[in-house]
Amino acid sequence: MLYLRLFFEFFKIGLFAVGGGLATLPFLEEMADKTGWFTRAQLVDMIAVGESTPGPIGVNMATYVGFTTAGVPGAVIATLGLATPCVIVILLIAAFLKNFRENPLVKSAFYGLRPASAGLIASAGLSVLLVALFKNSPALRVDLLSLVSWNWKAVVLMAVLLYLTRYCKKTKKWHPIAFIGISAAAGVLFQFGA
């Protein structure tokens, strides 16, 4: 019974949360209040864990909430519940697109959609960059111009990575995970956090 409810609750989130992983957050807060499966404080931990383990954040959160609530079966059921509506909706759209991809109207819509999509991804990248380049500060906006609030180690790492991934012929073709590994090592070695 708990399993069924878990599936259903996450199915609802998958169906109504638009815009990716962190868009599930308000729904999870509501779930915490309504079901008592976990507290809001636990939810904060779950975000931290979802962000600091491999895998898309939204999926990580569902797995963790499911596991906390009902063990291994709970983790599997919550994650599948979250993914099921996405899969159904996308399969419907994909089937439609398959038949209409060459349609001039669809082509025209994508002509406008592509730059918008690229703009959104760039903006998401920028917000990660801001978190990475500045020290934790509540008054972030005010401190942008003050030199002490910059995380200079991160700035140096960024410059090195830009060189390695874009200009250095030897390393340019390396797999992205190699750079992620190097950055994690650099972070630990030079004490990047806090």
Binding site: I121, G125, L129, L161
Partner: peptide, 22 residues
Amino acid sequence: QHAFAGIRVCVAVLVFNAVVKL
């Protein structure tokens, strides 16, 4: 925490490169 502070810089750079490709 230190490792992820490093990884975040890397993810931002990789996303930047990805957008350049797009």
